[in-house]
């Protein structure tokens, strides 16, 4: 399973490099999604399926949606009419799509070869993580709850002022 690790790691490094060097933010976001997905594969190979699932759900699902939402809201390139014609030219999506195809091939290989059994190590499932979280780290969970509440209130407060000023 070393091959899967190295391949996903290489994809992740390449996607991260391309993400930080893109000119437009939305193209960088596209590559960052690929980077997150490849990191999820790395987590899976390392025997952390729960962390891999959360990486996909929260990073690629929630945080990226926030980013894309803000980029679209700010309407960075003012000439929107010009972009409507070809919203995604071949050059833009070919890179992320190619990197994702590598990940897809890897995923198919892993599933076809028996999934977790091939890893050669112990996979730590969600049950052990949950027991650890709500046993040993119960105080940490509470603190994270405080932090998230603070995040919600902070984001709401900042957004509220803007709405008031704008109207």
């Amino acid at each position: 399973m070393n091959l899967a690790f190295y391949l996903a790691g290489a994809v992740s490094v390449a996607a991260s490099l391309l993400a930080v060097t893109r000119r437009r933010a939305i193209h960088g976001l596209l590559y960052f999604v690929v980077s997150v997905l490849s990191l999820a594969v790395v987590f899976f190979v390392l025997g952390a399926p729960f962390a891999a699932a959360l990486e996909v759900i929260i990073y690629a699902g929630a945080i990226m949606v926030l980013f894309v939402f803000v980029v679209m809201m700010l309407n960075l390139e003012s000439g929107t009419g010009k972009k409507e014609g070809r919203p995604f030219s071949l050059r833009v999506w070919l890179g992320p799509a190619g990197l994702s195809l590598v990940l897809l091939a890897e995923l198919i290989y892993i599933v076809a070869s028996g999934g977790q059994g091939e890893l050669g190590g112990v996979a730590i499932g969600p049950k052990a993580v949950g027991l650890s979280l709500f046993g040993k780290y119960a105080v940490g969970v509470e603190l994270v709850a405080f932090l998230l509440l603070g995040g919600i209130i902070g984001a709401y407060h900042l957004g509220w002022h803007q709405g008031k000023k704008g109207s």
Binding site: I58, I124, A128, S132, G140
Partner: peptide, 29 residues
């Protein structure tokens, strides 16, 4: 081979989520 790594990863995930929410609100502002 301990679950602690994933538990701490969850904390990092929560910190990242809160940071992004406030950071993007600041950017909008």
């Amino acid at each position: 081979g301990q679950p602690d790594g994933q538990a701490v990863f969850l904390f990092i995930l929560a910190v990242a989520a809160a940071e992004i929410a406030v950071g993007l609100a600041l950017i909008l502002r």
